[in-house]
Write a protein that binds this DNA or RNA. Structure first.
Lengths: 203, 203, 203, 203
DNA sequence: ACATACGGGACAGCCCGTTACT
DNA sequence: AGTAACGGGCTGTCCCGTATGT
């Protein structure tokens, strides 16, 4: 009678559990990295059991891929692509995204960096399946920016730039700024890079 | 096990062993990451034993810090700071560095990314000591670029820019380009970002 | 997981399912052994689900016992007892059985040995219920041979032998020959032992 | 202070530990089988730790192979080959071996069967390396018997038999008798088969 | 009857660090 | 300085059985 035995109840809510597992894993991968996160960590955070987890995801890799597909990808889409697409110009959209991300980071205590870049640097070399998924997300990201830049160009809102190349440049600068932000635990780099990109978009 | 032991010989070359261990660790951290690399991997690559390794580095973390201080830092210094400092202008220096790194990557079969950024993203959040060391390297990097930009400014080789900020921007864009290069396993992003940075330096 | 579920259909054929499960289990126990075969393996081979399987067999042990009773036992009866009983003499019957089994093994790519012996060696010590069932099959086997030998003796077709003992001897030699056949992945031992037994039956 | 902490001492006796591990494993494989024996069982029986065990044997398979090479093989040699080789005739040697094994089994409470046959039936199909090792032992066994039979033949102690074939027959009959002994938990089959083999050797 | 979701508990393997020894 | 043996602990995986749902 020392430990009162958890007396776990069954939830029988497959979609809910699946969601909780992916949320837990996404959050842990983001803050601690993929390799450093253990299955047990995920189980604990998702408030489930190893057995139940195994039913939904046979391996850790399966969780990683699902996190990329169902959490990281959509996150990029929501925080980057949607605002940019909805904006009147690339300049406006990119400026907005940078600012909102910067503000969000400032409100937190720890700067964990960009979920996509974190996993990209850790996993893309090791495993082809991970790499493929990461490339897909980068590709959609670049394409959305390029589309916006093309329409800017057609409307005469930007000078003669290569839309694809400039899209890559924006992503690179943002990614690097987030890497520095993570290392410095501050958003200074983000502000600087925002300004610089906007200046060039206006040139 | 059943076979007679390999009958290892003693080398008794403390400095040589230390060097071999750091080389091995730096190479493995670069290609596989810190967490994924095991002490056994390092021992095998350095062709030594666990005991001998422990004689030089009490823990894995000690190896990590030493790699940052004695391998990653100097590497940044050699491949980035020295060429930029020696160049006639930031533009020339940065252009040269980007090109040489790009050519080196093209010659290899796998693109492993930037050693500093790899470790920065993996370790800077988890451990304050690692973060401090990483920040120090980033700081020196930024300062060297800022120095060059200030002299450019004084000589009228660039317009009115904030040297510190532009240095951060260069580092961010380079870091991001290397992250993308790692994900895409190609140097296209590197070429694009080089062009873009040079264009802005001339503006 | 991410893919929509396979959308399994219900078959509603209780007897068919039971048969499929036993066939699957018998085949897997034969080729991989009882302990090494997992419930999941059986489920997969029988093309059913864990729940359905459990509906027919509460535990793995229940499957094991059913396989012994409804598959291994009948197999011994069909391949050994029936031919021997039907033959004109023990000599003829045993000779025929050895030959047909040998020919069957030669036609296959892998020699898995005798189903009864495989399970006997693996399970008879660990579990009394298994042992009991195995003893029962051995007992029927010996009795059938003894009956035939007695009739041979009465008809003067064999010299003065102890029918029970000689039956045991035949079974032992056959079992051992099958064990060697499994280890050697060939039927040489089977041919040798057939010859030897026939010689003795004639003496 | 609830559990008094084992406070384990280091033995630093690699050969002793290795021996203890193999003894433990051989005994457990013999009584429970290879698959059913867990690493933890071996650790407990050998009174060591998982870490220490791993240093000597990286995998369970390595233990299995070492047990075959360094325990099962020598056991066959001692209990079978040495007595037969030392005997004046095959008949005497085989008779002696059968009797001594039978007496030993009668003295025990559980009949575990022949160590070689137990592992042979369990492992020879699954893994080529195991099979190879098992075949080697069977081969030496057969050869030793054949040598003795040839010398018997030369001395006119046996009729015209094929030494190799008769050796195989002896091994098969013995193996089968041991299988039955295990299933029946008694030595009756062993006595019967001894008698039968001796009768034929005299014929 | 059948199908899916889930629980608890191991399994083999391995990892990092230390201790005894040369 | 260098070597091999060893300890304790944990990792990802999986297994068997059950409970819930249709």
């Amino acid at each position: 009678m020392a430990d009162p035995k958890p007396a776990r109840r069954r939830s029988n809510d497959p979609y809910g559990l699946r969601r909780k597992v992916l949320d837990a894993a996404a959050s842990l991968f983001q803050s601690r990295g993929y390799a450093t996160t253990t299955m047990q960590d995920i189980v604990a955070r998702a408030e489930t059991t190893a057995g139940a987890l195994h039913h939904h995801f046979p391996t850790k890799k399966a969780i990683g891929l699902a996190v990329l597909r169902e959490r990281v990808g959509p996150t990029v889409e929501e925080t980057w692509l949607a605002p940019v697409t909805a904006a009147r110009s690339t300049s406006e959209g990119v400026g907005l995204v940078f600012r909102s991300i910067q503000e969000e980071l400032d409100a937190r205590q720890a700067v964990n960096g960009c979920p996509l870049n974190n996993l990209a640097l850790e996993l893309s070399v090791a495993d082809p399946e991970f790499r493929k998924e990461i490339q897909r997300i980068f590709g959609r990201w670049r394409e959305a920016l390029a589309v916006k830049l093309r329409s800017d160009k057609a409307a005469g809102r930007v000078g003669k730039i290569d839309p694809e190349a400039f899209a890559t440049f924006i992503i690179a600068t943002y990614s690097g700024a987030m890497a520095i932000a993570k290392a410095e635990q501050g958003t200074a780099a983000l502000k600087i890079c925002r300004k610089q990109i906007l200046r060039e978009l206006r040139a």
